[in-house]
């Protein structure tokens, strides 16, 4: 059983952003690491590795579509325990929308071949769209299972999962192959081991281009060129003070009734 984990590189959660003529750039002076593994994808990587450890998967591929820099996320995935990595890197693929990305991921998964389960994160923290797992499943012609909080059983060609919905947990059995979108509840991602890091740094990661995948380019259907900083909030915080808790509480309650939010 082959498993593929989709891993995106995103700005770090503490990055600060600049927009210049619609072009977004970022920096992270605090941590010095402006780009990281999309935090939601750490759960996808962990689940991929658990599929090997608990459910007998033979290979766990980490797959990234990105640029020269994004190979770092694949090294992290290898260091955590993925057995292989594929880096799709081609300027012709830059600027894709989620559907374009889904097509590229689908082509790469077909090229890997004979895959039973694809695991993705819930969403990427830069765009926060969370559309990739279902779109990828459609392009592969497989069954999508989103918001998966537990993989409870795999037997033969069937898989049982628990999905986290607004109203509760849905237990679903599906026929493989499937694309699984994970949520944070599913596991606790491990830290890469020292040995893992050494091995990952020495691993050769194949790079595939658009033409390797038989793709000519990915025109985005959405024009999102207008990006700008959020206008600063007017006014500053109003501190509520008083002689005791009761006086403070009453003063705040008055304010909140005035604001008509109660």
């Amino acid at each position: 059983m082959k498993v593929v984990v989709c891993v995106k590189q995103t700005p770090s959660t503490t990055a600060t952003f600049k927009v210049d003529g619609g072009v977004v750039s970022w920096d992270d002076s605090g941590s010095g690491k402006p780009n990281v593994v999309n935090p939601w994808d750490e759960y996808a990587i962990e689940e991929g590795i658990l599929l090997k450890e608990k459910h007998g998967a033979s290979d766990v591929f980490a797959l990234n579509v990105g640029n020269d820099d994004s190979i770092d996320v694949l090294r992290t995935a290898l260091a955590m325990g993925c057995t292989e990595a594929i880096h799709v890197n081609d300027p012709a693929l830059a600027g894709a929308d989620t559907l374009g990305t889904a097509k590229v991921l689908a082509a790469a998964i077909e090229k890997i071949g004979d895959v039973s389960i694809v695991v993705t994160g819930k969403q990427a923290i830069d765009g926060d769209t969370g559309m990739t797992p279902v779109q990828l499943a459609r392009k592969l012609g497989w069954t999508p299972l989103t918001n998966v909080a537990a993989i409870t059983e795999i037997s033969g060609d069937s898989i049982t999962v628990e999905r986290l919905l607004e109203s509760g947990r849905q237990v679903v059995t599906a026929v493989l192959p499937v694309v699984i979108g994970t949520v944070k509840e599913i596991n606790d991602p491990r830290y890469p081991s020292f040995m893992g890091i050494r091995k990952a740094n020495r691993a050769t990661v194949p790079t595939w281009t658009a033409s390797d995948l038989g793709i000519n380019g990915v025109a985005s259907k959405v024009d999102w060129s207008s990006v700008y900083a959020i206008p600063a909030r007017e006014g500053s915080v109003e501190m509520i003070t008083g002689d005791d808790a009761q006086e403070i509480a009453e003063a705040l309650v008055d304010k909140l009734f005035e604001e008509k939010v109660i």
Partner: peptide
């Protein structure tokens, strides 16, 4: 919603439509 997002992604993929979220 959880269901709404799934439907949006499905239909956009099958009709090759543009999709703007959130």
């Amino acid at each position: 919603s959880t269901a709404g997002r799934d439907v949006a992604a499905w239909v956009a993929a099958d009709t090759e439509a543009g999709l703007m979220t959130e």
